[in-house]
Design a protein around this nucleic acid. Structure first.
Lengths: 206, 206
DNA sequence: CTGAATAGATAGTTCCACTATCCGCTATAG
DNA sequence: CTATAGCGGATAGTGGAACTATCTATTCAG
């Protein structure tokens, strides 16, 4: 197919597709002549993936490119993929260094839930940073409600890995990890809001 | 205190504070003369709240302003607050209309979990949109894993409301709803990633 | 044959979240 | 008392991100 069909079937405007081609999110089509290229179903699927990641997924174009590059790597590596994906989802900023007390809070939380957290893992800092933001915003994390969040997170993570074991091709595993990490987060957030609204209705009526 | 002290204690640069003042996220200080104003602890707390919402919370300045405006309203209303907050967190885009099948999927999910979802609620569309994005990205939602996410979301939402019943002042309730919605989402996401990493370590070593 | 579409390059646009500069004034150190 | 650093408030400028428009030289479809 040509670019206009790709555009129609994906819902992405032609200029945007050209932009993604330039940025390397989407491989070029096969040139049949100097100004004609042919795209196939793979291109369409890839474009839909890009669209999902940058749209609902909320990734920047640069972050999406990094993530996709790992998927495309010769020897894809689950570790790399997780690292890149985690970085992509919410860029680590150094806006407010967490205190040692907050890091310790995270460590003890992890211990209570039986999590192994590498001391140098950026995740440790990241969680501590969110905790720091909660404190800054005037919320107390001392009364144990964070453990409830951790339990829910643990449930979801276990299930995520269950799902992965049911897949066969490496390609599918990689794609599922990426999409599951990026969109799963959005799904969980949206469902939480839905559950919250329902709970509010149940408790306080309409 | 004057603006420089506000800046030092909050970590926000003076020009940014001026920007927030202009944008109405932070109330003006009390003028003691035409070019001198006095700020107090309330200003500092408010600034820290703004910083948490726009920083780790990921809200745009406009979204933060809308949310804060509801908190500041004469007669604050929990419904308004939730509506505005939900809109602020992830702006509703019309990028890919969910299909009727996807909406139906969401409805039956809600029913299975005993959630009341108003037919006109934007949440319905929002969840369906995430589901649509998952489909577009090539993931199947038919095998029941979404129910696991819903269960986790339900747990968290119930607990969120438990926390609220333990608070007294309306002000505190409102602030907790906002911060809890915005930052709670980030917390849950970060914890999920941490749990995922730990689970990966448990299953595949290193 | 002709008009619409195409590949690829370059340049322009729009939005956002700040920054920088400027002015007239004021608090304060010496 | 002066010098000077800082202030409030207004206006203008900056830099990055994600497109969007335009251009040229083809080429395909009717």
């Amino acid at each position: 197919m040509r670019i206009s069909e790709l555009s129609q079937r994906s819902g992405v405007p032609v200029p945007s597709i050209k932009f993604y081609l330039r940025e390397g999110l989407l491989p070029r089509g096969e040139l049949t002549s100097p100004n004609q290229a042919r795209y196939d179903e793979d291109h369409l699927n890839r474009l839909r993936l890009v669209s999902a990641l940058t749209g609902v997924g909320g990734l920047s174009v640069a972050a999406a490119r990094d993530v996709l590059a790992v998927i495309d790597a010769e020897e894809p590596n689950l570790d790399d993929l997780m690292g890149v994906t985690l970085k992509a989802v919410h860029p680590i900023t150094t806006e407010n260094e967490p205190t040692d007390a907050e890091l310790a809070e995270v460590d003890s939380l992890a211990e209570r839930h039986g999590w192994y957290v590498h001391p140098d893992s950026p995740l440790r800092e990241e969680v501590a940073q969110v905790v720091a933001a909660l404190h800054q915003a005037g919320l107390d994390t001392g009364s144990g409600w964070v453990d409830g969040y951790a339990r829910a997170a643990d449930d979801v993570a276990r299930q995520d890995h269950e799902v992965l074991t049911g897949l066969d091709g490496l390609d599918e595993v990689l794609r599922t990890v990426v999409v599951g990490t990026v969109l799963g987060e959005r799904l969980l957030a949206a469902l939480r809001r839905m559950a919250q609204a329902s709970e509010a209705h149940r408790r306080y009526g309409v």
